[in-house]
Structure formats: structure tokens, C-alpha cells
């Protein structure tokens, strides 16, 4: 692991004030290097989403320091945070969050349209390429309502990677998918990770966490455990194995 892409130094996040204040993060230290695939686990309310939102520059810490790819995030203004999200980060959500009544390719093209500095010329070609990368080259003009959950999530992943981000963040990306589709999505994340993209995802499922290289467990706003995955699964292999058993299931 080379230079750190993400570095959290004693980061806290407090919602509200006084007696009703909720301490969602109570001083988190975390370093993530380039090319890692990290799964964040933990009980409900332990602060996983809060941390991911801070990592994603959608939210700012109450205290502590956050350095993203060499940029001190707490010094950034709101518009600068928006530019940072656009340039360095890609998001995948549990609920897909695609624009309704908007075709797959237009959804994927959108982040490129918000690009500042040197505007992207061939936005459509790049969107098409990103969709082909997630295996949806034939669904360019489909609207979200015409796609399955797994396909919608793949459009969302294409949208996240079309800007070639440094870090890809996913909050329970498989939460709304069945187990087979979950493995497909994880295969995609693994493939992207193999190409060098840092991936950080939140999940409740141990099966899903098995595809990561490193697992972080949280509780009550703290990092409880942080360990590498020993018997790491390869999603592509699992899919092959699954396909081998399927005909028997169908016959039964």
C-alpha cells in the first residue's frame, strides 16, 4: 500500500446540541491507502453512514482532520467540496438514486456535465464506455423504471466511475439486491479495484465483506476492529460455482 488516499485524524461528528446531542463519531482514526477494498461493518446506529458521508465530503466533521488525496477537507468551502466530490469521488447508494424519467446514458453522463476547470468534450462517448464497462452497453436508452434492481445499481456504478474517481464510496450497495445480484455487483467492485480504484463500502452482510481486502468494525462511533480479510473470496469464481449448481436446482 503506497501513499494514503484517505486519512482521518481523531474525527468526531455530533448531531444537535446540549442534552439531545448525538455523538455519531467519537474520534475516529483511519488511514486507507490507494488500491484498497475496505468493508465497513457494525451494528445499526454505530456511525457507518455518518463516516461514509464525511469521507464523501457530503458532510463535514465536527472535530478532527480529514485529508483526502492530499487535500485538507475542513478548509474547503461548499462549492469547493462540490468540485471535490465531482473530481475525486464516486458514490453508490443502497437505493440506487438514479434520476427518474432519464435514460441510463443520460444518468451516467450527468457528473461529467458538472465538471469544472477543463470541461469534458465527449461526455456521451464516455458515458457509453462506462456503461459498457458494467455490462450494460445494450441498455443505454432504458429508463430506470425499465431496469431491474441489479441493472439500476450497475448504472449507478457506471455513473460513479465515469469521472475516473480516486475513491469509490458505497453505502450498503447490495442492501436492496438478492444474493446472486449482490455477488455480481461485488464482482464489479473487485474488477474496478483490480484496476486500481480504491473502494470503501458499508455492509451488514458478512458474505459481502468476504470480498473485501480489509474489514473495519464499528461500534458506538468508534472503530472496534480493523483487520485484513484472510480467506478472501473472488466474486467471479463464486458466480461460476453458482452457475454450475443452478441447473440442478432448476431440475429439482
Amino acid at each position: 500500500m503506497s501513499h494514503p488516499v484517505i486519512s482521518l485524524d481523531h474525527v468526531t461528528r455530533v448531531y444537535g446540541e446540549g442534552d439531545s446531542a448525538v455523538h455519531a463519531l467519537r474520534g475516529v482514526n483511519l488511514t486507507v491507502g490507494a488500491g484498497e477494498l475496505v468493508a465497513i461493518m457494525g451494528t445499526s446506529g454505530s456511525g457507518k453512514s455518518t463516516m461514509l458521508n464525511i469521507l464523501g465530503c457530503l458532510d463535514v466533521p465536527t472535530g478532527g482532520h480529514y485529508v483526502l488525496d492530499g487535500v485538507a477537507v475542513e478548509t474547503m468551502s461548499k462549492p469547493q467540496l462540490a468540485d471535490l466530490r465531482n473530481a475525486k469521488l464516486g458514490f453508490v447508494f443502497q437505493g440506487f438514486n438514479l434520476l427518474a424519467r432519464t435514460s441510463a446514458v443520460e444518468n451516467v453522463e450527468l457528473p461529467l456535465l458538472y465538471r469544472r476547470g477543463n470541461p469534458v468534450k465527449n461526455t456521451r462517448e464516455r458515458a457509453v464506455a462506462a456503461l459498457e464497462r458494467v455490462g450494460l452497453g445494450k441498455r443505454l436508452d432504458h429508463h430506470p423504471s425499465m431496469l431491474s434492481g441489479g441493472q439500476q445499481q450497475r448504472v449507478a456504478i457506471a455513473r460513479a466511475l465515469v469521472t475516473e474517481p480516486t475513491v469509490l464510496l458505497a453505502d450498503e450497495p447490495t442492501g436492496n439486491l438478492d444474493s446472486r445480484t449482490s455477488i455480481e455487483v461485488m464482482a464489479l467492485f473487485q474488477a474496478l479495484n483490480d484496476q486500481g480504484i480504491t473502494v470503501i463500502l458499508v455492509t451488514h452482510e458478512h458474505d459481502v465483506a468476504q470480498y473485501a481486502r480489509r474489514v473495519i468494525e464499528m461500534r458506538d462511533g468508534h472503530i472496534l476492529r480493523d483487520h485484513p480479510v484472510t480467506d478472501r473470496h473472488i466474486a467471479a469464481d463464486d458466480l461460476v460455482a453458482l452457475d454450475a449448481t443452478t441447473p440442478m436446482e432448476e431440475a429439482a
Binding site: P79, A82, D83, R85, N86, F91, P111, Y114
Partner: peptide
């Protein structure tokens, strides 16, 4: 509102 949230998450500024 959700559409606005999505746009902001992928890098739209308030001014956009």
C-alpha cells in the same frame, strides 16, 4: 428534493 440531492452528491454546486 431527492433529484437535487443526487445532483449535489455527484458534484453540482449550489449555484448550478
Amino acid at each position: 428534493t431527492r433529484e437535487i440531492g443526487i445532483r449535489m452528491a455527484i458534484g453540482a454546486r449550489g449555484s448550478d
